[in-house]
Amino acid sequence: MANNYFKFKQFTVNQDKTAMKVGTDGVLLGAWADCNGARKILDIGTGTGLIALMMAQRYPDAEIIAIDIDESACDQARENFLASPWSDRLTVVHSSLQNFVKSNAGEFDHIISNPPYFQNSLRSGDKSRDLARHTDSLSFEELFYCSNNLSSTRASLSIIIPYAAEINVMTIKNNSSYNLFRKLHVQGDINKQVVRSLLEFTKENVANCKEELLYIEKGKRHAYSEEYKALTSDFYLAF
C-alpha cells in the first residue's frame, strides 16, 4: 500500500485523499518539461498537485494554475499547495478542461499534463481512479483542442503518454497549431523496451525535433542510471 505522503527535497505531497498516488510518470514530466520564460503555467489533471509543485520550484517567476475534474483531488492539491513554500503562486481550480477553456482562452504560456490514457480497458471499480486513468473524461483530441485554445501564440505543451499511444497522438496533433520539438523515450530498465514518451510541442515553427532516450535502471532494481539521477536530483531525497 502506498504511503499517505511522499517527501521531496523542498516539499511534501500528501496523497491520502486521491486515488492516483505520486508516480514516476509525474516526476519525469515535472523534471523534464521546459517552461523557461513562461509566466503563466497550466497543469491539467493535477491530482495531488505534484507537477504543479515541481513547476513552482523550478520556475520562481511563474504563476501556476492547476485544474482537476475530481473534487477530492482538488482538496488534496490545495492542501499540498498551502503547505509548500510557493503557496502564493499556486492555485487549484475544480473544473473539467472542457469547461475551463470557456473562460480562460489564450492565457497560458505553457501547458503541462500527465493525461488519462486508457481506452476501452477494464475499470478498477474506483470511480476517482478510473476518472484519472481513462480517456472517457478527457480524450487526446480534447486535450489538444482545449490546449490550443488556452495557450498564447508562442506557447508550449508538454505531456507524458504510453509509448504505444505516440503514433495516435501525433496524428491527432496534426489538427492543432502545435509542432513537436522535443521527445524523450523512457525505458524502465536498460534491458527492456521503451514504455513512455515525453513529448513537447510549440506553436512556433520547428526545423528539427530533439530526440533523446533515457533508461531508469541499469539492469538491476534500484540501480539507477546517472541520467535519471541527474534529471530528478533536485527532487528525490535519494539523489
Score class of each variant (00 low, 15 high):
Ala73Tyr: 02
Glu141Asp: 14
Tyr145Trp: 11
Leu53Asp: 03
Gln15Glu: 12
Ser151Val: 06
Ile160Val: 15
Gln193Gly: 13
Asn14Tyr: 12
Val206Lys: 05
Asn149Ala: 12
Ile112Ser: 01
Leu131Cys: 15
Leu97Asp: 00
Val92Cys: 11
Asn175Arg: 14
Val195Asn: 08
Tyr224Cys: 12
Asn191Ser: 15
Ala66Phe: 00
Lys21Ile: 08
Gln57Met: 10
Ala19Thr: 06
Ala83Asn: 14
Ile112Thr: 04
Asn99Gly: 02
Phe118Ala: 09
Glu227Asp: 15
Ile159Leu: 12
Asn168Phe: 04
Asn168His: 14
Thr91Lys: 15
Phe6Gln: 03
Asn205Ile: 08
Val27His: 01
Ala56Asp: 09
Leu150Gln: 06
Arg196His: 08
Cys146Trp: 02
Asn148Glu: 12
Ser197Gln: 07
Gln193Trp: 07
Lys173Leu: 12
Glu141Trp: 07
Gly47Ser: 09
Thr24Pro: 00
Leu97Glu: 00
Asp189Ser: 13
Glu211Pro: 05
Ser176Ile: 08
Thr12Pro: 06
Asp68Gln: 06
His110Gln: 12
Leu131Gly: 01
Val186Asn: 03
Thr202Gly: 12
Ile111Ser: 03
Asp189Pro: 07
Ser103Pro: 03
Ala66Lys: 00
Ile161Asn: 00
Ser128Glu: 11
Ser124Gln: 10
Ile172Glu: 05
Asn114Pro: 04
Ile41Trp: 01
Tyr59Met: 10
Ala52Leu: 04
Cys74Phe: 06
Asn99Met: 14
Lys192Ile: 10
Asp70Lys: 03
Ile41Met: 05
Ser225Gly: 11
Asn3Ala: 13
Ala230Arg: 14
Gly49Asn: 11
Arg129Ile: 02
Gly188Asp: 06
Ser152Tyr: 05
Leu53Met: 15
Gln57Lys: 12
Ala164Phe: 10
Arg123Ile: 09
Asn148Met: 11
Phe181Gln: 09
Asp43Thr: 09
Arg129Trp: 05
Lys7Glu: 15
